[in-house]
Amino acid sequence: MSIQMNEVYKAFGDVRVLEGFSLEVEEGETLVVLGRSGSGKSVMLKHIVGLLLPDKGNVWVDGQQISNLPTKELYLLRRKVGYVFQFAALFDSMSVAENVGMGLERMKEFSREEIRDRVEECLTLVGLEGLSDRFPAELSGGQKKRAGIARAIAIRPKYLLYDEPTTGLDPLTKAVIDRLILRMNRELGVTGVVITHDMESAYRVGDRIAMLYGGRRRFLGTPDELRSTTDGVVKGFVEGRPELLENAS
């Protein structure tokens, strides 16, 4: 029971985003959360690192309840969680290496050399070796995403959260990223949560797949179960058939 969300409600003003969303992520698995754009996937993911706090319900990560955590311990917990942002969210004023090393520097456990080695290692892992002195503005979209992943994995997190890692990339880069996610899971034993609306990726990386719809979880199951679902909403989304979705809802 590594990550658990129980009946989470979240609204921004009048806009209710999550309305009793629940999810359990098993240790060591990669869980994909599907959902339409604007369905609240990112909001859900931000609850896991405490960037957002639930209006109602609770979120447990690594045995600790996020909303009750004092700031200091929340920061300690965040060292176990890597977060890959949708548009990488690299710091423009810093080089790739500085970006990747930032989390390590904050931990104050490593010497300058150790950080440099670890950064190089992570960049190699995501295939960006030799680009450490570049600035984010000089990278392509795919490179940025990979740099974002390198930054997330640099702190050797126990959990990795991916916010639409493959959106807007060409098929080849997508495949590279998907493989990266799998490698993280297989080689580093990382528990992952991937939110996406890209079905190809979802099937490739997901051990289990969930779907967020109308602020609640509409589906949870293996990829095979997803393929054979009879729920019109889920089927309509997966197969890209709006008419199914309309009929079901």
């Binding site: 690192v49 960037l51 700031t71 920061y75 300690l76 965040r78 942002f85 930032m102 904050r106």
Partner: peptide, 14 residues
Amino acid sequence: VTEQIDALETMAYP
């Protein structure tokens, strides 16, 4: 707007 502030948070930078 590019979530860099969120990124700071996730890396435990207030």
